[in-house]
């Protein structure tokens, strides 16, 4: 896979108010970008704009929508389906198959037949992340991917990310507070906080 993600002069809003402006970066194939910044700075909002869920106030995102895989806080797991059925569902939607190695990679092999509703939150998160391996898209947008994972699982996930995704030319943009221990650029969003008067989101017309 070869893909590129570029962002130029992006401004995004949340709740009718611009939170970030002038965000520009490019991520070449095989590289990861880590987004940092305090709570509320706009990491999630930026990822949602990149994923195409929300329109930017200004600027543009250069990436094919079909390349993007978005992983939100919520894992999108159906409690009444088994672990395997959950993955098969997403594979079906994306027209792919569930690769054999996925269960081992995410330490889910013993849980295949369990109903997803009975999993612990860490196990659910692993299932949610396993979806990324199933749907096979080159650009990953990960919002706090390691929440509720133990240290061992974090290491495992970092390994998976570098060896199975980035090594194959994939791209990852990760909003996180912890150190994943992977080689990646870091972008502190604090510098892009919207300050300028007039950058007031959709309510600007009323001022």
């Amino acid at each position: 896979m070869s893909a590129r993600l570029g962002v130029a002069g992006l401004a995004v809003e949340r709740g009718g108010l611009a939170v970030l402006e002038g965000v520009s970066f490019g991520v070449p194939a095989g590289r990861a970008l880590i987004l940092r910044g305090p709570n509320g700075v706009g990491k999630t909002t930026l990822l949602r704009v990149l994923a195409g869920l929300q329109k930017p106030l200004a600027g543009r995102v250069e990436a094919a929508p079909d390349d993007i895989a978005y992983a939100s806080h919520a894992d999108g797991i159906k409690a009444t389906l088994s672990v395997a059925e959950n993955l098969q569902f997403w594979a079906g939607i994306h027209g792919t198959g569930v690769p054999d190695g996925v269960y081992d990679l995410f330490d889910l092999a013993d849980l295949r037949g369990r109903e997803a509703g009975t999993l612990s939150s860490g196990q659910k998160r692993r299932l949610g992340l396993a979806r990324l391996a199933v749907i096979d898209r080159p650009i990953w947008l990960l919002d706090e991917p390691t929440i509720s994972l133990d240290r061992q699982s974090v290491t495992r996930f970092a390994e998976f990310l570098t060896q199975h995704h980035l090594a194959r030319g994939g791209i990852a943009v990760i909003a996180t507070h912890i150190d994943l221990g992977i080689e990646a650029e870091t972008l502190d969003l604090t510098a892009f906080r919207a300050r300028r008067a007039g950058a007031d989101g959709s309510d600007g017309a009323f001022l």
Binding site: G15, G16, L17, D203, G204, F206, L207
Partner: peptide, 16 residues
């Protein structure tokens, strides 16, 4: 309604 939106916009900006 326009005044309400203006109040809301000013309020949001002030809180930021």
């Amino acid at each position: 309604e326009i005044r309400w939106r203006r109040v809301r916009a000013l309020d949001l900006r002030a809180r930021r």
